[in-house]
Design a protein around this nucleic acid. Sequence first.
DNA 1: CCTACCGATCGGTAGG
DNA 2: CCTACCGATCGGTAGG
Lengths: 211, 211
Amino acid sequence: MGAMIGAAGAQVGARRPGRPRNRGPSAEYTARLAEIVEVAAKVFRERGYDAGSLDDVASELNLRKASLYYYVRSKAELLYLIFDKTITSALDSIEKCLSIQDPRERLAALIRHQVVMVASEPSFFTVFFDQRPRLARNYDSEILAKEKQYLRVYQEAVATAVDNGVLAPMRARYGAQAILGMTSWIYKWFDPDRDDPQAFADACVDMIMAG
Amino acid sequence: MGAMIGAAGAQVGARRPGRPRNRGPSAEYTARLAEIVEVAAKVFRERGYDAGSLDDVASELNLRKASLYYYVRSKAELLYLIFDKTITSALDSIEKCLSIQDPRERLAALIRHQVVMVASEPSFFTVFFDQRPRLARNYDSEILAKEKQYLRVYQEAVATAVDNGVLAPMRARYGAQAILGMTSWIYKWFDPDRDDPQAFADACVDMIMAG
DNA sequence: CCTACCGATCGGTAGG
DNA sequence: CCTACCGATCGGTAGG
């Protein structure tokens, strides 16, 4: 059993008494890494991935650049971690829309979800959308697979909406990309002093499902 | 008169006989500069503005990097020229939609225009949209003013469509950004082997103006 | 439009 | 998590 490696002296099949020893990275390490990823997203949003330096990221954390390498293998991995956090939490949070049965209500919920999510995490989504081609090849397929999974949720909701007369007939791919474009685009123009994500989400819903 | 400077010996008010001497840059210079801007857009699309080097641009033109400085003051100016060409030709080409009187047809034409235009110039629009924050401060206000002018065209078309019952009531700003997002987003997913801009444009029109 | 070159920045490593 | 440092790249200039 892989899990027994390093458990020298333990009886075979016997459970170690008391709380199991923590495996993997410590809670402090995990928290610090999350902080680094957060700051990196902010820096890469403001200066771009290539122009935003690891010195920029480190100094905003009161660290030296070399210290980042205790947490991260490379700058490319740091970008990957931003992408992974973004798409993973997007996939997680979209789950709640899938329990909605009514085709119209489900599509409306998906639209509102995308608008509110993107507007609430501008750094992560700006990097995710604008720096997508900068992601290193070795990380690409994993992120791409999750993006496709995400897109499929919208495609299926569109197809169902078309079948039920909620939307005009159209290719599910086009309908899904139209909706994702309309909603995600908010990261380029949203001004918190002026705009309200909920109101914009309502406008999107009204626009494509008037009545 | 500024135009007379350097025209020594010409009689005041008298027109120089024959074809007027060419002012400003030669036709060869202008054509070569346009070629440089085109290649730069391609390079910056593929590698990003910061990671795409002037050596990359030059070598694709069979030039040395230093030669680019005969045409351009700086890398930042080269990026500006890409932005200027993009937004200027967008403003020019949108004119033809403004002659359409019917509110529904005008909005449909604007939607189709944006889809087809973005899909037909992927390098320029990818740089325009993704590298917007990299544009140097001294060029920003000029481009921003033209972007606002462009947005206003869509806002007015939305407002008219709302007034005529073509669209559900909504803030013109939200309606315009929703439409520009839905249509412009195509630069991120369009696959020429798979997708047809005209068909996508029709889907967009159907989606927001069904019936 | 070219050759030759400079100064600065930056990702990453050694070694602690 | 730090100090010290290296190698490579790159925008830009001199001078023709």
